[in-house]
């Protein structure tokens, strides 16, 4: 029984695409609400900015009408092949939204768009110009194996981003102490 449960656990661990659901517009979404007991809205917003700056500095932030909502767009690479043959198969663009209120915040990633990579004449894998496939349509455009793999990688990326965000939102970071180089004085015995 336990053996079967172990195998089931392995299977469930693989299916990261299950972390994604569909929103009211039938688009893939990764949606989470988290509690932040004792933390005010402005503190949470400051921590979001603090999180994005070093961790995801290439996310382009956009202004929104709601001052408590931060919206940005970014992309991550997806890989194919295994072992030595593993290389970039494409990139997935996404929209990230983080909204804060007193003692809680929510975040969601949506608007996933896959851009396939091709090998160029110089031996690099680069985006195919003009090819953009919404993640919702990826099963119609690509083989099942690739489509499932990219959905799994999307789920994994979203969870990873969410886990890092939670760390920044709940943990207080002490200011970094200036590192003092260890010095040895040789003019004294």
């Amino acid at each position: 029984m336990i053996a079967l449960a172990s195998l089931f656990f392995a299977k469930v661990s693989l299916a990261q695409k299950e972390l994604l659901s569909f929103d009211e517009n039938n688009r893939y979404i990764y949606y989470q609400v988290a509690d932040a007991p004792g933390l005010r809205e402005d503190t949470l917003l400051a921590r979001v900015s603090y999180f994005l700056k070093p961790e995801y500095s290439k996310i382009k932030l956009n202004r929104t009408a709601n001052p408590n909502l931060l919206n940005g767009s970014g992309k991550f690479l997806v890989y194919g092949g295994g072992g030595l043959l593993k290389h970039e198969h494409g990139e997935i663009g996404y929209s990230l939204n983080i909204e804060c209120k007193d003692q809680k915040y929510r975040y969601w990633l949506t608007g996933f768009v896959f851009t396939p990579y091709q090998r160029d004449r110089y031996g690099n894998f680069v985006p195919e110009p003009g090819k953009e496939i919404p993640l919702e349509a990826i099963s119609n455009k690509l083989g099942k194996k690739d489509a499932d793999s990219y959905l799994d990688e999307t789920g994994t990326f979203c969870k990873q981003l969410g886990d890092r965000l939670k760390l920044f939102m709940t943990k207080t970071f002490a200011p970094k102490k200036a590192e003092v180089a260890k010095r040895t004085v040789t003019d004294k015995w």
Binding site: P54, Y56, F76, L77, Y79, G82, K86, T156, F157
Partner: peptide, 14 residues
Amino acid sequence: AHAASLPADTGKAA
């Protein structure tokens, strides 16, 4: 499986 599917962020990480 996790190692193989772990995506790399294209942004700079701390």
